[in-house]
């Protein structure tokens, strides 16, 4: 998650005062973080852009509530997550159309040396994330896209740390089961998952 910079407090004070230039700087500073959260959750570029605009519109309307002593990122993330989850809810209810193209990036396009198997695993995981319950998906996105800590995720989602922990735990198991099913369907009776290096796990405790 983006660290609060030394001039964040100054920004926030000016934004609270209604300075349009300061709000533009505030937007440019945090736009990418909000966009990535929205994109990872809604998996559609246009919807993600919409979420970014709506997030900052709401932030502008409620700028009085900004606290100069704290980073505005969790607050912005919370708005973006809520708006994204609203989009997902509307999609589930059929009010909003499903995007035809998945917006999880194709790893092969960004990492040319990626092996086909890795690509397949990543694609299967992306599909699995889509099937996760919305709140679990939010935890996974904040953790793995923004590298947010348990406390940061809890602050963003306004829930206890224990809840975040259990959501992450359950999400990993659901994704694991999903991945197994996915590969089992593709290649019945095989054990296709290439085991990661377990040695790494032992090494880190010395």
């Amino acid at each position: 998650m983006a660290d609060p910079g030394p001039d964040d407090a100054l920004f926030v004070n000016e934004v609270r005062g209604g300075d349009q230039k300061a709000f533009e700087a505030f937007y440019r500073r945090h736009e990418a973080v909000v966009y990535r959260t929205a994109l990872a959750l809604v998996r559609d570029e246009m919807t993600a852009e919409e979420v970014v605009t709506d997030t900052f519109l709401r932030a502008h309307a409620a700028r009085e509530r900004l606290d100069p002593a704290r980073s505005p990122v969790p607050w912005l993330q919370r708005i973006a997550v809520n708006l994204s989850l609203n989009h997902l809810r509307r999609r589930r209810l059929g009010i909003e159309a499903l995007p035809e193209v998945a917006a999880w990036p194709d790893e092969a396009a960004t990492v040319p040396e990626a092996a086909a198997e890795r690509r397949e695993t990543t694609a299967a995981l992306a599909r699995g994330i889509e099937r996760l319950p919305a709140q679990m998906r939010a935890v996974v996105v904040l953790r793995f896209v923004h590298d947010a800590s348990l406390a940061e995720i809890a602050e963003t989602l306004e829930c206890p740390v224990g809840t975040v922990k259990s959501r992450l735990h359950n999400a990993l198991r659901l994704l694991r089961d999903d991945l197994r099913r996915d590969f089992e369907t593709a290649q019945p009776g095989t054990q296709p998952l290439a085991a990661p290096d377990l040695g790494e796990m032992g090494e880190s405790i010395g």
Partner: peptide, 16 residues
């Protein structure tokens, strides 16, 4: 399998 999921998520997160 779980570690594979974690590694995959880290890779996916890094890409996003």
């Amino acid at each position: 399998d779980l570690l594979l999921v974690v590694a995959g998520l880290q890779r996916l997160g890094g890409t996003v």
